[in-house]
Design a protein around this nucleic acid. Structure first.
Lengths: 215, 215
DNA sequence: CTGTTATCGATATTTTTTTATCGAATAGAG
DNA sequence: CTCTATTCGATAAAAAAATATCGATAACAG
C-alpha cells in the first residue's frame, strides 16, 4: 500500500472505481487503463491516475493496470477483505432495515447486534441479530473489541448514545440521526444525513428553475 | 435570498445550522451569533458567517442574527417550506423503509408512490403509499410533474431505471444503488452510497491503528 | 456622552484540490 | 530493429475552499 494518507475526495471515489472494475469482470482484456476508467465514470483521467497511485504502484505505460490485481488492491485498501465488527443502537424502522441488510459483509462490516432503550424490544431478533438492552452495551463492546458504532436513534438521544459508545471504546461512529455530534479528538463521525442529500437535490432544482424559467 | 449559487460544502453545512438553531428553540436570547454556532458545531466562525451570508443579510454587529428569522430563511433556502413531489423505484427492503419514513415532509419531500418491476408487488400499499407497476411510471411523472426520482433497485438495474426516470421528466435523482449513473448534462445525481461512508470509516480506523500501533 | 467589547462583513493569505503539461516507458506495427 | 501511439507518473499551474486579519458598527457600561 503505497500511501496511507489519502484525501477524503479520493476516498470517496475509490469505491466507484472498484464498483466499475467489478462490473467489467466479464470483459475481454486483462488490463484496464486509468483513461478508460475516467471516461466510463465521467471523470478527469489525471484524477483517476492520482487516486489509483494511492492504492497501487503497478501501473505500466501503454498497458495500464491488471484488473484483477487492482480490484484486490482496492478491496484491501477499503478494508473489504478485513471485516470490522460493529454494533447498532436504535432498533426502530431504520435500525431494523440496516440490521436486515445483507450487503454489509461484502463491504467489510459485520453488525454483531442491535441495542435499544425500549425494554419491549429487548430479546427480539431481527434478521438473526439480537436486540439487547442498553446496559449490555459497554460489556459487549469491550469484550469483543468493537470499534464501530451505528446510531439510528432520534436526534435528541443521539449525543447521549454517542457518548456511551465512545466510553465503550468505539472509535468511529456512523451517524444516521439528524444531529450534530460532539466527539473527542481522534474519533470519527461519519454522518449519513438525509437532510444534507435533500438539500443538494432541492438546491439543484431551484437553480434549474431559476435559470431556465428566469429569462 | 442574497445568493443562489453556493458551494457544495456550504450547502452541506446549512442543514446542520438549521438543526442546531431548532434545537436551541427554548433558549433565552432572541438572537444568535455566528460565533456561538461555530463553537457549538466545532467549526470556524468565519466559515459559518460566510455560509450564513448566502442565506441571510440580516446579521448585525454585536447582536448577531434573529434566531427565528434565520431559521425561516434557512428553511426557505433549503426548500423545506416548498414540498417537492418524488417517486421511488424499487420496493425492496430499503425502498419500503424509505416509503414508510415519515420524516420526509418536514424536509420538503413528498413521495407520491413506489414502483417495482416485480408484478407481485404491484397493487400493494406500504405506509399508505401505492406500489405500482413500472409501465405506469412515465404517465404519473408527466401528469403530476415529478422532478425527483429515488432509486432503490439493485445496482445492475440502476442505470436502466435512471434512464427511464429521466425520459419521464425527472431532473434530480437520489441514488441508493451501488452503481455509477451516467446522466445527460443538467441532471443531478445525488449518491447515497453506503460503500463510500464505510470506506471513510474503515480508512479512519486503519489510520488510527497504523499510527497508534505503528511505533 | 465616551470608551469598550462583541460581532459582522470584506479582504488577504494559506491550504487543499483539481486540472493541465511534459517526459519516460513500453507494446505493437511496419 | 526502429518508429509510433498509448499510458503512466511527476511536476506545474489554476481553481476552490478554508482560515486569518482588519476595519466598521452597534450595544452597553460607566
Amino acid at each position: 500500500m503505497p500511501d496511507r494518507c489519502v484525501s477524503k475526495q479520493t476516498l470517496q471515489r475509490l469505491p466507484a472505481y472498484l464498483n466499475y472494475l467489478r462490473s467489467q469482470a466479464g470483459r475481454a482484456g486483462k488490463n484496464v487503463s486509468a483513461t478508460s476508467i475516467a471516461e466510463a465514470l465521467g471523470l478527469n483521467d489525471v484524477v483517476v491516475r492520482k487516486d489509483l497511485a494511492a492504492v497501487s504502484s503497478k501501473g505500466r505505460p501503454k498497458v495500464g493496470y491488471a484488473r484483477l490485481e487492482l480490484v484486490r488492491e482496492l478491496e484491501s485498501f477499503l478494508g473489504y477483505d478485513n471485516s470490522q465488527d460493529a454494533i447498532l443502537v436504535g432498533a426502530g424502522k431504520l435500525g431494523q432495515a440496516l440490521l436486515s441488510y445483507s450487503g454489509f459483509p461484502q463491504y467489510g462490516l459485520n453488525i454483531l447486534a442491535g441495542f435499544d432503550a425500549d425494554p419491549s424490544l429487548a430479546g427480539r431478533e431481527v434478521a438473526g441479530k439480537k436486540i439487547l438492552p442498553m446496559d449490555k452495551l459497554p460489556g459487549l463492546c469491550r469484550r469483543v473489541g468493537v470499534h464501530i458504532g451505528i446510531i439510528t436513534v432520534p436526534g435528541e438521544q443521539a449525543q447521549a448514545v454517542c457518548d456511551q459508545l465512545i466510553d465503550s471504546g468505539v472509535l468511529a461512529v456512523w451517524n444516521f440521526a439528524n444531529a450534530h455530534l460532539r466527539v473527542p479528538e481522534g474519533i470519527l463521525v461519519q454522518n449519513e444525513n438525509m437532510a444534507v442529500s435533500l438539500a443538494l437535490l432541492s438546491n439543484h432544482l431551484r437553480e434549474r428553475f431559476s435559470t431556465k424559467g428566469g429569462a
